[in-house]
């Protein structure tokens, strides 16, 4: 049995202790997904599972058999960057670059959540079908991704530029 990772079928590891994160980084050399804390506290390891964002450090790889994983390496179309990747460059949404893949994957997952109207902690009306696309909403929803260089403003600007129209 296998896990689909960026479109390729990957065997489930024999050792059930192997996290999805370590499977990506050590076995598959997909090192774009980062290990910042290995305990779900920083978001650097965020990947998309069937389109939903999770922290791969707390995910035992064996649990994800049959699921489809997208990592930062799976976002570009060949040489062409995903629009959010380009927006991160344009808005200087990173400095050291270590939290960046996690921020980008998280934002893509978040955009899907916004599209389907998932409320957040700061959403006023829980029953509204549409969630307002505001800076405060984005900041709350991206708070699971730490950045210690302090690129937060650029990150939110990049997300706003990329997904603002989608949500509007």
């Amino acid at each position: 049995m296998a896990i689909e990772i960026n479109g390729s079928q990957v065997p489930v590891p024999d050792d059930p202790r192997v996290s999805l994160l370590d499977l990506l980084r050590e076995s598959l050399h997909l090192t774009g997904t980062k290990k910042g804390c290995n305990q779900g506290a920083c978001g650097a390891c965020t990947v998309l599972v069937d389109g939903e964002r999770i922290v791969s450090c707390l995910a035992l790889a064996v649990q994800y058999e049959g699921r489809s994983i997208t990592t930062i390496e799976g976002l570009s179309d060949g040489d062409a960057l995903h629009p959010l990747q380009q927006a991160f460059i344009d808005h200087d949404g990173f400095q050291c670059g270590y939290c960046t893949p996690g921020q980008i994957c998280s934002a893509i997952g978040m955009a899907a959540e916004l599209r389907r109207g998932l409320p957040s902690h700061v959403t006023g009306d829980l029953t509204a079908e549409r969630v307002p696309f505001s800076r405060v909403e984005l900041q709350e929803r991206m708070s699971g991704n730490l950045c210690c260089c302090g690129a937060h403003n650029g990150i939110i600007d990049a997300i706003t530029e990329t997904f603002g129209e989608v949500a509007a």
Binding site: T31, K34, I72, G97
Partner: peptide, 21 residues
């Protein structure tokens, strides 16, 4: 000027110390 290492960083291609095979 945008960061010259931006492209490799947003693509996850920048290899950090623990990532060298």
């Amino acid at each position: 000027v945008s960061r010259l290492d931006g492209r490799v960083k947003v693509r996850g291609e920048a290899r950090f110390a623990a990532e060298v095979p």
